[in-house]
């Protein structure tokens, strides 16, 4: 299996030091379109899709391998190995922030910096820890995914007709980014929102930057602060941008928050 084809890896940029961008749940590498170009001058930028998302090889999806975030972290490490990347700046959004954390714990010598955008080690409230959601909320989400991935949205037709092999039947109407196989989306959501990697944070030796949005309902400020506290070499920047995707809604602010951390 070709790792680069499996993850639809795209390499650009004129720099020597690699910067790897890892997208979160619900999207694909397209979500870096406003941020990644800003670093092409000085870095070798590496974009990819997680297996099951975007242009990745869906056939490579393995329920066991991707049953935990470690599987996704292993993919990141495989890409790094394949491209012989060293001194990597890893930029991970949402769940991919934790993917980067796990990868950096496994091979600390490979990573120079971690940029964690909207990270959360655990989405579910647990005693004093406030993740933002109850278990019921998350289960409700998993149920509702059926509606949007299998519902009246354009993917419905092939499913009802028993033609999942012919996605072209549904491509005309649909939202062209962030497409994901329904079953994979559901498992990815489960893996993402039911994971608890709080205990891993103190193991990270790599200097890390947490980019925290204002008013982020997915990963609130308290969660960002928690992550920053638990990381041995963590710092946090609170963005004015609202929502969960500052890389899309406020790319300039995101870029300028990253630059000082990267020594610009």
């Amino acid at each position: 299996m070709n790792v680069l084809a499996r993850n639809n890896v795209k390499v650009k940029g004129q720099g020597a030091q690699p910067m790897v961008f890892s997208h979160g749940f619900g999207c694909d590498q397209n979500m870096w379109r406003f941020v990644a170009p800003a670093f092409e001058q000085d870095y070798r930028t590496v974009l990819f899709d997680h297996v099951g998302a975007g242009g990745s090889d869906v056939a490579a999806y393995d329920r066991n391998r991707y049953g935990t975030l470690e599987g996704y972290a292993d993919d990141v490490l495989q890409i790094c190995r394949e491209l012989r990347l060293e001194q990597v700046v890893f930029v991970g959004h949402s769940v991919s922030a934790m993917v980067g954390v796990l990868a950096a714990i496994k091979e600390p010598e490979r990573f120079a910096r971690l940029v964690l955008i909207g990270p959360s080690p655990c989405y579910i409230n647990d005693g004093e820890y406030v993740g933002g959601f109850s278990r019921e909320d998350i289960l409700q989400l998993l149920e509702s995914l059926d509606d949007n991935y299998l519902g009246w949205s354009s993917t419905m037709a092939p499913v009802i007709m028993g033609n999942p092999d012919r996605p072209e039947l549904g491509t005309e109407l649909t939202n062209s980014f962030c497409r994901m196989d329904p079953d994979i989306a559901k498992q990815f959501a489960k893996v993402t929102f039911l994971s608890d990697h709080r205990a891993d944070l103190p193991k990270v030796q790599t200097p890390s930057l947490v980019l925290q949005c204002s008013n982020d309902v997915i990963a609130g400020q308290a969660v960002g602060e928690y992550v920053c506290r638990q990381l041995p070499a963590g710092q946090m920047v609170l963005l004015k941008a609202t929502g969960h995707c500052p890389n899309l809604s406020a790319p300039e602010e995101t870029i300028s928050a990253m630059k000082p951390f990267l020594g610009y």
Binding site: F25, M31, E143, L145, N148
Partner: peptide, 14 residues
Amino acid sequence: VAGRIFHETHYAPL
């Protein structure tokens, strides 16, 4: 709540 998560992870970025 579930809809909000979907909104933030799918609707808004799209």
